[in-house]
Each structure stands twice: as C-alpha cells, then as structure tokens.
Simulated assay, not measured.
Amino acid sequence: MSWTKICPLNDIPALGARVVRHGEVDIGVFRTEDDRVFALNNSCPHKGGPLSQGIVYGDKVACPLHSWKISLVDGKADEPDVGETACFAVKVEDGNVYLQLNK
C-alpha cells in the first residue's frame, strides 16, 4: 500500500466531491463543510448510483438516484436501508489530498 497524491484540497469544493479512477474502480473523494476528507467507492450499495454526484451534508452523502444516506466515515447506509460501500484511507498533508491505494 502506498499514498498517492490526488490533488490540492482546494480542488475539491466544500460539500462536494471529485472522482479518482483506480484500475476499474471509481473512488469518490468527498470534502465536508469543515474540510474533513473521506473516500468511498463511488457506487451506492442500493442501485449503483454515483455517490460523487450526491449532496454532502455533515458526514454523509445522499445518493442522487434514490436519496439513500451513506456515511462518509464507514460507508454504511443509514437505517432502515441496509448495505455499505468500500472506504479508502485518505489524508491531507500540506494542503494536498492523498489516497492509500494498492499498486
């Protein structure tokens, strides 16, 4: 596992996301209003909706297809919905965002 520089933090809008492609997987990198950064598989566990196009609020994102609420912290859907999507380690150093990815 290694850390891969993705972009400057300011390239991700507050309450927004950016998509990073790693192999066959699209990863949504999300920025909260208070500048915390999270990374999830960009596919909603319900019907595969693109989470990066959803609305970010607090530490959740609402899927744009059916409004499932997905935790940015652990990738789990809010009850009563059931399911989860993969999370990726992410960090911000010196104003840059890094993802921990398998090479």
Score class of each variant (00 low, 15 high):
Val61His: 10
Glu84Gln: 10
Pro64Glu: 03
Asp81Cys: 13
Cys63Gln: 01
Val82Pro: 00
Gly54Arg: 05
Asp78Trp: 08
Gln53Met: 02
Cys63Met: 07
Val90His: 11
Gly54Trp: 02
Glu79Ala: 14
Ala62Trp: 01
Cys87Ala: 12
Val56Met: 01
Val56Asn: 00
Pro64Thr: 11
Asp74Ala: 08
Ser52Phe: 00
Ser71Lys: 03
Pro64Met: 02
His66Gly: 11
His66Val: 07
Ala77Glu: 11
Ile55Val: 07
Val82Tyr: 10
His66Thr: 00
Val73Tyr: 10
Val61Pro: 06
Cys63Asn: 02
Gly75Ser: 09
Tyr57Met: 08
Val61Gly: 10
Asp59Arg: 04
Ser67Ala: 13
Asp59Phe: 07
Val82Leu: 14
His66Asn: 14
Ile70Gly: 03
Trp68Gly: 05
Ser52His: 07
Phe88Gly: 08
Lys69Ser: 15
Asp78Phe: 14
Gln53Arg: 12
Lys60Arg: 06
Glu79Ile: 12
Gln53Pro: 01
Val56Pro: 00
Ile70Tyr: 07
Ser71Trp: 05
Gly58Asn: 03
Trp68Val: 00
Glu84His: 14
Val56Leu: 04
Val82Ala: 08
Val90Lys: 11
Gly54Cys: 05
Val90Ile: 06
Lys76Gln: 14
Glu84Phe: 11
Gly83His: 13
Lys69Gln: 15
Lys91Asn: 03
Lys91Ile: 09
Gln53Cys: 01
Leu72Asp: 05
Ile55Tyr: 00
Ser52Asp: 04
Gly58Glu: 08
Ala89Met: 13
Tyr57Val: 03
Cys87Leu: 12
Leu65His: 10
Ser52Leu: 01
Cys63Gly: 09
Ser67Pro: 04
Ile55Trp: 01
Leu65Asn: 09
Ser52Met: 06
Trp68Glu: 06
Lys69Tyr: 07
Gln53Tyr: 05
Cys87Pro: 10
Ala86Ile: 06
Ala89Phe: 08
Cys87His: 08
Ser67Trp: 11
Ala89Gly: 06
Pro80Arg: 07
Tyr57Leu: 02
Gly83Lys: 12
Cys87Glu: 01
Ala77Trp: 10
His66Trp: 08
Pro80Phe: 05
Leu72Tyr: 12
Gly58Gln: 02
